[in-house]
Design a protein around this nucleic acid. Structure first.
Lengths: 142, 142
DNA sequence: ATACGTGCAAATAGTTTGCATACCA
DNA sequence: TGGTATGCAAACTATTTGCACGTAT
């Protein structure tokens, strides 16, 4: 898998070690449907690996962010959430403030406009965040 | 001033009281160049009003958010920031990750595209957040 | 063997709350 | 006067860190 290779390279470059914990955390994270917080992942892992520590989960997620494998999100619920990066498809989010549903969307025209705005300020974009908050169709219908 | 009227109405409607502290906090907040955190505002106020409490500042800012006079922002530095709402001009932000500079921008085309995206998911937008992170011209030039 | 990683518990940072006192309407 | 607001300190929540012990290279 491509991502495993990236992680491997990064670890080697930084002199970091492969451990059972890291393997299982990374695997679970990449397979989990995305947008999970440290706690979500910790609780999920604990079922099969009761000895795993919260701090290790958190440190591993930070590591993935450093490798560029994951990015941090923050949807105003007070928890930092992590999401695997899929290099081919950047996307942004619709967040339902009622039920917490998260829908991903992508719109190349917006990306293009962003670039133009940045350029007009001689600003170099590293990354961005674009979230639309409101009611999903179910919650709006109630 | 228009905003003072809105605040007054809100206070009356909710049976809230006008106090010296609230007046000075609100006045300072509205006059301060925007994007300040509770702490920023607290420190600024403390110079002239040493007896004012951090909690009061924070509670007043929350109150302003409730009235729709202020909105909460969060630019990944771990602090919630508050910004006065100017009803006529919605805007988004460019944030320099190096020096913390914040530039406001607005782009009606993007707003329009957002509406179309939301509509395609039968999603009702309440508000949104759109931030571009990167290097400002000064920091990029270094 | 050595340096990095882990798990635990404790520290931190930001925010929120309980409560006795002060104040507005 | 009665209920709301304030200031302080303590509680909370999410996150980060120190450290003794374990483990990969």
């Amino acid at each position: 898998m491509e991502q495993e290779k990236i992680i491997d390279d990064f670890m080697r470059r930084k002199g970091l070690k492969t451990t059972k914990q890291r393997n299982v955390i990374i695997k679970t994270f990449l397979n989990s449907h995305s947008h999970c917080s440290t706690e979500d992942l910790y609780l999920k892992l604990r079922k099969k690996h009761p000895k795993i520590g919260y701090a290790t989960v958190h440190r591993t997620l930070k590591l993935l962010v450093e490798c560029g494998i994951a990015i941090e999100q923050n949807f105003r619920d007070g928890q930092t959430r992590f999401e695997p990066v899929r290099e081919d498809s950047h996307h942004d989010h619709l967040v339902c403030v009622e039920c917490g549903l998260i829908i991903e969307f992508s719109e190349p025209q917006i990306e293009q406009l962003q670039q133009e705005i940045a350029a007009s300020y001689q600003f170099v974009i590293r990354n961005h965040r674009h979230e639309l908050y409101g009611l999903c169709s179910r919650c709006a219908g109630k």
